[in-house]
């Protein structure tokens, strides 16, 4: 089937099989910043924003989100113009292998939109769907707090 997806602000018309997951449609069309870690909605490496809310793209059938707005981590910033959340993750030492990072950053973005001053418990709840095996989450928690400060300063 064919459908339009609004990915990182651009309308994209994409041909895809009706049983395809959003994760596959994104990855097969070059959005490989969306990572596949488990395909069962448990690891969060594939988290994207769907109409502003974080979802596991592996748990979304692509056909059901045609015409909807999807934002991946590359929709937030680039290496030349990084988003303050991305900078915060770098500065806090929250990026080790970096495989979970795009999902973590998306979840952080959604959290800070809703709650610019998160407490520890808010952070833990917002990032509960993103597994990380490298950091033990200590620096990630720090990064979210640092991001909160940066985002407020930048007004993003």
């Amino acid at each position: 089937m064919r459908g339009v997806f609004i990915i990182n602000g651009q309308r994209k018309e994409i041909e895809f099989a009706p049983h395809k997951r959003l994760l596959d449609v994104l990855r097969e069309n070059g959005y490989t910043e969306v990572k596949e870690g488990c395909r069962e909605g448990e690891c969060g490496a594939c988290v994207v924003l769907l109409d502003g809310k974080p979802v596991n793209s592996c748990q979304v059938l692509a056909a059901s989100v045609m015409e909807k707005e999807i934002i991946t981590v590359r929709g937030l910033g680039t290496i030349h113009k990084p988003h303050p959340i991305e900078e915060a993750f770098v500065e806090a030492g929250a990026v080790q292998c970096g495989f979970c990072t795009p999902g973590m950053i998306i979840s952080t973005y959604a959290l800070l939109k809703e709650n610019p001053d998160p407490e520890d418990d808010d952070i833990k709840r917002a990032l509960d769907g993103n597994l990380c095996r490298c950091t033990g989450y200590v620096k990630i928690t720090k990064a979210v707090k640092l991001a909160s400060k940066k985002v407020k300063k930048d007004g993003k």
Binding site: G41, P54, V55, S107, A110, A126
Partner: peptide, 8 residues
């Protein structure tokens, strides 16, 4: 569930 799953 988790935050991203809750949204689905």
């Amino acid at each position: 569930a988790t935050t991203p799953l809750k949204n689905r």
